[in-house]
Simulated assay, not measured.
Amino acid sequence: MLDRVTLYRAPTTAADADAVADWLDQRVPATVDVRDRFLADRDDDLAEAFAEARVLSPYDRETGNTMLGIVRYEERALDHPERAGGVIYDGLAVQDILRERLPADERSLDHLHVPLLDRVLGTWGDHDGRWHKRVNVLGQPALVSVPGLYEAPAKPEQYYKEKQRTAMVSGDTPPREVLEEQVEGEFLVEDDPRTTEAIKGYVLQVYHYLATGADFCATEGCRLANPHRQPGVIEAQLRDPEFCEAHAARYES
């Protein structure tokens, strides 16, 4: 039985782990607690492990670049995460990296660990031969990528049309902030004040998977749904009702 959940803060992001924990604690029978950043205390091999988990190309299944300069970058990213960015990591490989670093007496499936991460994670799609960014990676530990919340679900179609149009006119891609001001529609952006509220549902998803063995809900608008577009994320995580009828019986506070 899953009777304990530990969340780990991601202090360089807009996600408030304590608020997420309070929300989760009201909805599940497990004890919920919060710890500081999972990667705060790195060992000598951690930077190289992250270098090996790097996605090299959107269409290349092989990962990893352990050249000295890349490992040095990963060391700096661990020590100063606010300076990192622009890299996608194999989510399953990162899961393995962090699982090996769980306390030896806390690795059983009755104690779920949920690091909130400031890294962009992806999983390989055998069906289309490319990497796909993810908000969460189910399992133990369960990973929740805060930047994945902004980057993984596709934005409204007009966002990409405006990006292409501006690039054709100016010869360069406009800054993300400019596009966000020019495009109407609902989508989450970096450091969005709604980040914590949206992340709550993704944390509940990883709890639900380990507690029940079921993954995502097929009902649009349920907190346990896994929409592939930003408007669907808004609908599922920020609008009422929070849950479909089946999951409301289990998780409504």
Rank of each mutant, 00 (worst) to 15 (best):
A93M: 05
E242A: 15
G221Q: 12
I70Y: 04
G232N: 07
A198T: 12
V135P: 06
S253Y: 01
E181N: 04
A10M: 00
Q237C: 00
V183Y: 05
P241T: 08
A225V: 07
E82S: 14
Q158S: 09
P156Q: 03
C222P: 07
Y209L: 09
A84G: 03
H111C: 06
D41K: 13
P174S: 06
R130Q: 15
T31W: 14
S170F: 15
A167W: 13
S170L: 14
T195R: 00
A142K: 03
C217D: 03
R37H: 09
Y202K: 06
E242T: 07
A77V: 09
E184V: 09
L149G: 00
R37C: 11
A21F: 06
V169E: 04
K200N: 10
P174F: 11
D60F: 15
P115G: 10
V87L: 14
I88Y: 12
D60Y: 11
R72F: 14
A198N: 04
L78A: 10
G86F: 04
Q182M: 13
K200R: 15
K163R: 15
E100M: 03
V114W: 10
D118R: 03
G69I: 14
E235R: 14
L78G: 10
M168W: 03
T196S: 03
H80I: 09
Y89L: 12
H127V: 15
S253D: 11
V94K: 00
P58M: 06
L238F: 10
